[in-house]
Amino acid sequence: MTAVPAVHYLRPARCPCCDAAGRPVDGPLRMRGHGLRERQVYGPLQAGGAPQLVTVHARRYRCSACGAIVVVVPRGLLPRRRYTASAIGWVLARVGLDGATTPTVRAEVCSCAIVGVAAAERWLAPSRWIEASRRGQLFPRLGRHGAESTRVQIAERTAMQLVALSPRGDAGERAPHLAFRGAALAA
């Protein structure tokens, strides 16, 4: 996440908007490099590690066919989310499977030392993530969850789906560690 690969390594094969080939065999490039954009993301780099704030350089490409701008980010980042997918998976597993409170989990994934008065008692980001998961927008390949389910049930189900996606490690490894790795693959 800290190294910036060359433009040709990350060039999209197709434009997601018009489906034009990014690098046609018999023609000029359609997906051209369009600079870099910095993006700050929160979360530990390892399961159970110290929370960090990392600046990621995302490559931008412009489609010459339709003019769309495409941003290519490292695996493990979700669109329009401040936290890494792994950090979100960790939070959902801790809340849904371990029954941890949101202020406790916030201290595990957020590197901010200063929080507001309301944030000391309740952290709202997990509620947003759970609602996005209910609609199938957080990790789209996991699907939707039933409208009758509670937030804790949705967090639990999403975490278990992320655990199932995770490559297996040690036999005694805890579910939040597996959800952390599975979320990076589901992003």
Results as ranks from 00 to 15, higher is better:
76 G>R: 05
155 A>G: 12
124 L>H: 10
68 A>I: 04
8 H>K: 12
59 R>W: 09
125 A>T: 13
81 R>I: 03
26 D>Q: 06
26 D>Y: 02
137 Q>E: 14
82 R>P: 06
5 P>L: 12
132 A>G: 08
20 A>R: 02
32 R>F: 06
39 R>E: 15
166 S>F: 01
152 V>R: 14
79 P>V: 12
40 Q>N: 11
24 P>Q: 01
133 S>F: 11
120 A>T: 05
45 L>V: 10
92 L>C: 04
54 V>Q: 08
77 L>E: 14
70 V>I: 10
49 G>P: 06
23 R>T: 12
119 A>M: 09
177 H>S: 11
182 G>A: 06
82 R>I: 13
142 L>M: 09
84 T>Y: 04
152 V>E: 13
62 R>M: 09
12 P>Q: 05
135 R>Q: 11
71 V>G: 03
111 S>H: 04
106 R>P: 10
21 A>R: 04
59 R>V: 09
168 R>A: 07
138 L>F: 14
147 A>W: 08
76 G>S: 03
29 L>H: 02
178 L>N: 00
57 H>K: 07
31 M>K: 00
40 Q>Y: 05
94 R>K: 08
122 R>N: 12
43 G>I: 04
8 H>D: 15
151 R>C: 09
128 R>L: 15
182 G>R: 00
62 R>D: 10
142 L>V: 06
101 T>K: 09
33 G>W: 06
168 R>C: 04
103 P>W: 13
3 A>P: 07
86 S>Y: 03
114 I>H: 12
165 L>H: 01
105 V>M: 08
116 G>T: 14
40 Q>K: 05
120 A>H: 11
110 C>A: 06
49 G>L: 08
182 G>V: 07
174 R>Y: 01
127 S>T: 15
65 A>E: 12
91 V>Y: 01
59 R>F: 10
45 L>D: 07
49 G>Y: 08
49 G>F: 07
185 L>M: 01
180 F>S: 13
157 R>F: 11
23 R>F: 10
130 I>L: 14
36 L>I: 03
99 G>S: 07
119 A>D: 15
150 T>W: 05
99 G>D: 08
55 T>E: 14
28 P>E: 14
123 W>P: 02
89 G>D: 02
36 L>V: 09
101 T>P: 00
115 V>T: 11
9 Y>M: 12
160 M>H: 00
131 E>P: 03
155 A>L: 09
69 I>M: 09
177 H>A: 15
150 T>S: 15
88 I>N: 01
30 R>V: 15
49 G>R: 07
149 S>E: 15
31 M>H: 00
71 V>Y: 00
129 W>Q: 12
155 A>C: 05
53 L>E: 06
67 G>Q: 04
187 A>G: 09
68 A>M: 02
174 R>Q: 15
154 I>M: 10
153 Q>F: 10
91 V>M: 00
118 A>F: 05
170 D>Y: 00
30 R>L: 06
100 A>T: 00
113 A>I: 01
57 H>T: 03
22 G>T: 00
107 A>E: 11
152 V>W: 03
157 R>L: 15
47 A>I: 03
62 R>V: 05
15 C>S: 01
66 C>S: 02
161 Q>I: 01
79 P>A: 07
42 Y>G: 05
58 A>Q: 13
10 L>E: 15
73 V>R: 03
156 E>I: 02
103 P>A: 10
127 S>K: 11
110 C>W: 09
34 H>W: 12
1 M>G: 15
124 L>S: 11
88 I>H: 05
180 F>Q: 03
